[in-house]
Design a binder for these strands. Sequence first.
DNA 1: AGTTTCATATGG
DNA 2: CTCGCCATATGAAACT
Length: 567
Amino acid sequence: MVAVRVAVVPTPAGGARLRVLAEDGRPIGGAQVHADLVEAVGVLERAEAPRWVMANTMELYPRLLAAGVTVTRCHDVELAEALLLGYAGRWGEPRGLPAAWARLTGAPVPPDRPPRSRDHQPTLFDAGQSTPGTPSGDDPLDMLVAVHQAQRERMDAIDRPDRFHLLVAAESAGALAAAEMGHAGMPWRADVHSALLTELLGPRQAHGLPPRRLGELSERIAAALGDHRLHPDSPAEVVRAFARAGIRLPSTRSWVLKEIDHPAVPLLLEYKELYRIYTAHGWSWLASWVRDGRFRPEYVPGGVVSGRWATRGGGALQIPKAVRRAAIADPGWVLVVADAGQLEPRVLAALSGDDRLALAGGGGDLYRTLADEVFGGDRKRAKIGMLAALYGQTSGEASTLVAALRRQFPRAVEYVERAARIGESGGLVRSWLGRTCPPATAPAVSGEPDPDEDGESGDLSLSPGRARARGRFTRNFVVQASAADWALALLATLRTGLTGIGAPGDRPELVFFQHDEVMVHCRSEDAPEVVALVERSAASAGRIVFGDTPVRFPLDVATVDCYADAK
DNA sequence: AGTTTCATATGG
DNA sequence: CTCGCCATATGAAACT
């Protein structure tokens, strides 16, 4: 019989212990012991491609990838635990296997281990069976099997189990993709990056001395303000210098400075831009994060409450446009870059079943249609109105614009307003697939008491100010988290499909994922097939997540040599 | 000296 | 009185 699911734990000596499971998680037969983890997984994957049940994908899978073994599907017990805890309103409790096992057996719940650092070498201890706080003698494979089985039962017991199963599968697939992306890395030309820095900043100086261009600018800024010396990166100094020149600044933010008519302003703006690149994406960034022609950040699936990914170093999700010129495909290869346009309003249309809004997104530019239907052709206002509805903005003319939207799209607007009301009254909201927002936290952890908070006398209701903030959060959560549901489904479909394209050994590789954008590195001749696959995956993600919906999720797809040319 | 918060930038 | 969501990362400033 074909193994549907297989639980796997590594042994300290590089081996593995496996147990075949039925779909519901019940073990079939006893534990198998293998001397070689990589071989055991590789053989079974090729033969039966089961869903691998693992405690933590990001810890185990990189070892398999390093040895050339990929797997198709998994169930990540830790990620599933976090989703289940969140669903139950127990957000923030330890979610690791030892903690889940302790809850199952009624033992004291140990805290989660802190995440390992990036250049941490696995030790016998890490790979081993005992974990701090766990009674030794508990077999990790037994723990894994039992916790997984219990998770399957908990998943079946909640509302909309079909969607929640999808969520766990998508979250797990995301973890596989994250490990694979960390393994592949984004093609990155250090020489191009360095040349770009030199062009912008002047040649690199020794000992972290600021590059010449920054020094020159700061001298000219000082001179323009009648000073001898000035650190333009110190907001306090800049404010003081302007004060001496008779200009009072509330802050030194770019948009504040832009309103000021003074010769130092353009210099200062230029300085800020260059300084930012120098400190955040300069030579030291290059040295820390780019090796062997690849940028390898550390992705953290499920790292953001809304289900978006985070990174633990490298800042992969904030790569400035200016340095994207260094992301260049290998010779003979290209980058297929695809991003979902206007994803959040489209997701709102699907969530709320607002078919009129769905229709408005049918023509490609949703804001354009909105503008023509509601705002007398004013696209800018249409966009502000929609974003105000999604974020809860009330200042300026935002309320008026949202009210206008509501007249034409009552279901969509009511959906987010309802989420806001639930949040304001202290309730929980969920994404379409069931990812749940964290509960309202107890205010004033330390320091100054919140002026908006009158008393801490065990009153669970929120103060008006906090309640409104909470409402904006839950309002946005339902949309942002459901958009993340969709994006994960896209990613999962895409990564599976890619294994069928290209020649073995020269497969397209997923190298980047950023909220609503994916990047595939592939041979030029495979690009058309990849483009078609990405587009199919987007459409299929819409159906998988939202079922039968008229909402379209169009992608902007570009096949380029260089990331900077994608948009 | 080490740690935390603030200000400002980047991304979606 | 103010009122736009989610993040990461850096250096300066403030704090222990």
